[in-house]
Amino acid sequence: MNIFRFAGDMSHVVSILVLLLRLRSSKSAVGISLKTQELFLIVFVTRYLDLFTTFYSLYNSFMKVAYIASTTYIIWMIRFQEPYKSKYDASQDSFLHIKFAVAPCAGLALFACLVKGELSPIDILWTFSIFLEALAIVPQLFVLQRYREVENLTGHYVFFLGAYRGLYILNWVYRSYYEQFYRHNWLVYVSGAVQTALYVDFFYYYVVSKYYGGKLTLPT
């Protein structure tokens, strides 16, 4: 564990808490992408199968369970609970059909694992989750774009999620310098970089809006 990784994890936790607060305070999921939440749940469930095979630490196991549980709860709220359910407008969230994200990532993961000779289902699903995570935020970014004016807490949610990914890049740099038996994984680096790059545009407008104290409005 290093400071960047821990700060990244905490930023991720804060983003989830902000999202829950955002849903509860506005009593609506308008501006929130259910698709992004569902993609994240697929990511967590496929990546954290090692909960059953490998024990790293109590911290690690607790966080994994917390991510799965909180994301499941958020999806349940939007899909089945009032008033979120009836206010949810699926047509705002039409970008990127889940299968068009899942299928290419599954194909790529299978290919990558064949090349690396990692043929266990757990390895293949882990690699799949690395690729899918890079795409998971895309529907949320499109929902933001659709409404243009971003509600305060929704903006914070995306900001903390992006900060988490940015901090993980610093964590990899740190680990490669200071951990003796650290092994690079370029697939993780590349999809982590792609994922972080997706947030850059949002970050720019977020920081500018905070600096000038105005509303966060995205350009057309």
């Binding site: 090692d50 490998t54 690690n60 757990i122 990899w172 092994r183 994984n185 993780v188």
Partner: peptide
């Protein structure tokens, strides 16, 4: 299966 260090991350 723990071929890379990233596997212990969240």
């Amino acid at each position: 299966s723990s071929s890379s260090a990233a596997k212990d991350e969240l």
